[in-house]
């Protein structure tokens, strides 16, 4: 039943009032009079900062509990016999793609926006 399901699952809220996330230069209380564009730009920038931090520190947010991880695809091996598509590699790639999309979106809203120093636009694949 619904009640049973609710008892089993955990709340999406994490931490307590005293365990707040701090993103340098990015307050979490905004004035009420921002335009939708300003709000969207701010949230995009906050998400970019979070992704940048994850990519820089290597703290990629991979669940330690294997049961919470998504199923792995078929392994792909390199010429040296090492696996190429490891979970770390796949997660990093996903985060980079997410960040790329957000940076593109933010640059459209604000042409003066400067992407993080370690950002490289992905190579465009040329299809014959």
């Amino acid at each position: 039943s619904r009640e049973k399901r609710r008892k089993k699952r955990r709340s999406r809220w994490m931490g307590t009032e005293n365990e707040k996330a701090v993103i340098p230069g990015m307050p979490t209380i905004l004035p009420a009079d921002l335009t939708p564009d300003q709000t969207e730009a701010y949230i995009a920038q906050l998400q970019i900062e979070e992704l940048t931090r994850k990519l820089r520190t290597g703290d990629l947010g991979i669940p330690t509990n294997p049961e919470e991880r998504s199923p792995s695809p078929e392994p792909i091996y390199g010429t040296d016999g090492k696996r190429l598509n490891t979970r770390e590699y796949r997660t990093r790639k996903k985060l980079e793609e997410e960040r790329h999309k957000l940076i593109q979106k933010l640059m459209k809203i604000n042409p003066d926006y400067k992407p993080p120093a370690d950002y490289r636009a992905p190579m465009v694949k040329i299809v014959d």
Binding site: R12, W13, M14, G15, E17, E19, K20, A21, V22, I23, T28, I29, L30, P31, A32, L34, T39, Y42, I43, L46, E50, G61
Partner: peptide, 12 residues
Amino acid sequence: GRRFSNRVVVTS
């Protein structure tokens, strides 16, 4: 500043 589904909550 709390996290919800691992995202930082922003308020106004």
